[in-house]
Design a binder for these strands. Structure first.
Lengths: 235, 235
DNA sequence: CGGATTCTTGACGAGAATCAAGAGTTGTGG
DNA sequence: CCACAACTCTTGATTCTCGTCAAGAATCCG
């Protein structure tokens, strides 16, 4: 975990869209960036661990992270992917002296902007909007989780898979010659849909046979999303 | 929905334990109580509806409420019970101009203390701790939900039922001659465990046969919690 | 006593997890 | 450039949990 403190602005990719930052006025964004540490992260690196004291707020700039919770028996509960622009470690601000609620681990090579406890306290005083932005992020997280919970309780494996495809396409898909390309392995899709690798493969194969998608190793191409939106039907 | 504005203190039962209020200093509690409206609620009454503008914060004083989310297809996703002392409508404060995230409906006759939007704004200014208390409540809610999600994904129906019994005993159970009495119907237990009425009945019957519990109409008596804690095993 | 509510049990089936075995890719080093 | 290892994907057979449906018993209440 190497730190760089120079060229923060350069570290912020042009196209970075962050609902979190967008909630803040320009001068607060500048204040944030000024006191941020830019840190590179590598795959499998744990960025925060549930139960540990929450002492840093951070923003994913590039790469992808996996948010999950562990249980005593060693099983893990996948919650969601974190994409560039997403903010984490919100407990650091929201609940004063707190502990992280979830574990987050990098999936790909990437980089984050981080603020330690002292920086957070200073920022909260100087940026009146920051608290609101954090609250917003937390409640969106909550809203989202209720949704996923509903999906798992009330929809079939097939519907969940279709929905995961649609969402993944929106979040990490980019246009290619044959359609929207999504760089996910079957295993990752299965994880997000809360299905075993096998049921995921089965449905994906079926859709491939019918021509709804094309598959390559670690990559899926969707000519059109609408059939999957139809399958996922209800929210 | 009849309002009474007198005798607020009298309306607050002696034994009311509220993690929400306990997070506040005495003078802020007084300020809260002073501007509160006490409202009686009846079974099946909807206290807030998801999607509607969040314009009141409220505290359950007596009775029990059911928190759930509806889906387009009409199905509903039970989230949890609300017990006396629990605070709701937190979106009113946390996300400024917001909409309720969940629907809440009274299960029993009961009463609530409510604050409208104007009162909330005034209180936030006068009570510095209030914001923190609300944030705490929200994140506890989130923590809780992750937990329930995990329970539904990683535990069997039997384990979930056992866990629901243990938790219900703690929340709404009271000691009786034969053990802890829990005033829940099979249907409600099934709801909380995210199981059909039939599987719930089956396991409860089994436990009755083995002598782990006694059943009456709408009421269950648990001589001891430990066997159920064992069955629920992991968190 | 009737009627409504709540609980019980059984038979059946659908959905998805599990397990086993192998095929297809990709990358590496000799 | 080939051979090998590691990873990823595929398919089938099997099992099991739990939901669904039907029918009826027990309990409570006016």
């Amino acid at each position: 975990m190497r730190r760089k403190n120079t060229g923060i602005i350069a570290a912020l990719p042009r196209g970075l869209k962050s609902a979190f930052l967008d909630a803040l006025p320009p001068f607060e964004i500048r204040a944030l960036l000024k006191s941020a540490n830019c840190i590179r992260v590598s795959p499998r690196q744990v960025l925060q661990q549930e139960g540990e004291p929450a002492n840093r707020l951070w923003l994913l700039v590039t790469g992808r992270v996996s948010v999950y919770r562990l249980r005593r028996d060693g099983e893990s509960l996948f919650l969601r992917w974190g994409m560039p622009g997403d903010a984490f470690g919100l407990a650091t601000i929201v609940r004063a002296p707190a502990r992280y609620l979830v574990t987050i681990e990098a999936v790909e090579e990437g980089s984050i902007l981080a603020w330690d406890l002292a920086a957070c306290e200073a920022l909260v005083l100087r940026c009146p909007t920051l608290g609101k932005a954090v609250n917003w992020a937390v409640s969106k997280y909550l809203d989202n989780l209720i949704d996923i919970f509903g999906m798992c309780q009330l929809q079939t494996a097939e519907e969940r898979l279709a929905r995961v495809l649609v969402e993944s396409a929106g979040q990490l898909g980019h246009s290619g010659p044959e359609g929207i390309e999504v760089g996910l392995k079957n295993e990752e899709i299965a994880l997000a849909a809360h299905v075993t690798l096998f049921t995921a493969t089965r449905h994906l194969s079926k859709w491939k046979r019918v021509g709804l998608l094309k598959k390559y190793r670690g990559r899926i191409v969707l000519p059109s999303l609408s059939p999957f939106q139809t399958i996922a039907s209800d929210l």
